[in-house]
Simulated assay, not measured.
Amino acid sequence: MTPRTALVTGASTGIGFETAIALKAAGFTVYAGARRVEKMEPLKDHGITVLSLDVTLEDSMASAVALVEAAHGRIDVLVNNAGYGSYGSLEEVPLAEGRRQFEVNVIGLARMTQLVIPAMRQARSGRIINISSIGGKMYEPLGAWYHGTKFAVEGMSDSLRLELKPHGIDVVIVEPAGTDTEWGTIAGQGLLATSADGPYREQAHVMAAALASTSGQVISTPASVVAKAIVRAATAKRPRTRYPVGRGAWSVLALRRVLPDRLFDVALWSSYKRFTG
């Protein structure tokens, strides 16, 4: 039986890197794409093909999909993992940065999806796995741009699930909680660069500490655990529509459902302030 083909975006580190390895171990032919191709060199030792892929550039996205489809006819599983977190007060984050946040986290995801749908639709088979976050169901101070993108991914994925169902294509959302990757550290550094010295400085230092706490800490979830959930989503005969994953993911989502907004505001801020003592 011919192995199914998977393309993983944002595969240079963290969740994407581990997902590429896990999908290969599960029997997929795997293509891993990212801007930092040198970071993906170790993936070659696992028999994974690495591609230069920038989800903000049309030619880069179209070339990557065309290469895989030329070799295999279609992409069976697309994992839309490329993304980053842009934090800072809405007042202080330049609009150009806000646009870039949506360009990477939403528009790039949408364009990659557009590119793979025609071959999937023709085969009446395929699976699109969008990496959202529990941040697509909750919110944080100084995270308006980031959470705006994840809320968008959630709504887009739900709509897409319905419109592609008649064509045999599944759409799945994976919602990680805090994951032990470089993501939190980088997001915290960006936050401090934007808002550490202005009118939002108290919140900025609290939030930067909370974001950094996901990197190398026992409270965070290893990226490999998220990768296992993605493999389950890719291989299940009838996948769930959502896979919350990670320490605290289910409890946070449950609290968001049951607590009134203002009470959730208090609980959230209190939980974050403990990171600064």
Rank of each mutant, 00 (worst) to 15 (best):
L23M: 01
Q101G: 11
D59M: 08
D158A: 08
L115T: 11
A249N: 03
V245Y: 00
A187V: 04
E41A: 15
S12T: 11
E103A: 15
A123R: 10
P176K: 05
H46M: 10
T113S: 14
L95T: 09
A11G: 09
I107L: 15
R124A: 15
A234E: 01
A209L: 07
A223N: 08
T214R: 09
V68D: 09
V77D: 04
L51C: 13
T19I: 07
Q217L: 04
S52G: 09
I134L: 12
Q114E: 13
A123Q: 06
W250I: 14
Y87E: 00
A196C: 04
T276Q: 11
S213N: 13
E91C: 01
T2E: 08
G148D: 06
S195T: 10
S271H: 03
V258T: 13
P199Y: 07
A70S: 14
M156Q: 03
R74N: 04
V226W: 00
F102T: 07
P222T: 06
R4V: 01
D59V: 14
W250L: 15
R257H: 12
V65R: 09
L43T: 07
K165C: 00
M120N: 05
Y146A: 12
A123W: 04
G155L: 08
R74M: 10
S271I: 05
D76M: 14
A66L: 09
D197S: 13
R74K: 15
R274S: 15
A32H: 00
V252S: 06
T235C: 10
T185V: 11
E97A: 12
F151I: 10
R4Q: 15
I117Y: 02
G126F: 04
M138D: 02
Y31I: 13
I15V: 13
D59Q: 13
V104K: 07
F17K: 15
A233D: 00
G108V: 08
V8S: 06
E38T: 12
G178I: 03
F264Q: 12
G155I: 07
G188T: 04
E163V: 08
G148S: 10
T149V: 07
G85E: 04
G83W: 05
L263F: 04
A152Q: 06
R161A: 10
A249S: 09
P222A: 04
R35P: 03
V8R: 07
S251M: 14
Y84G: 13
V252D: 02
L7P: 06
R121V: 12
I129D: 02
A209R: 11
A144Q: 08
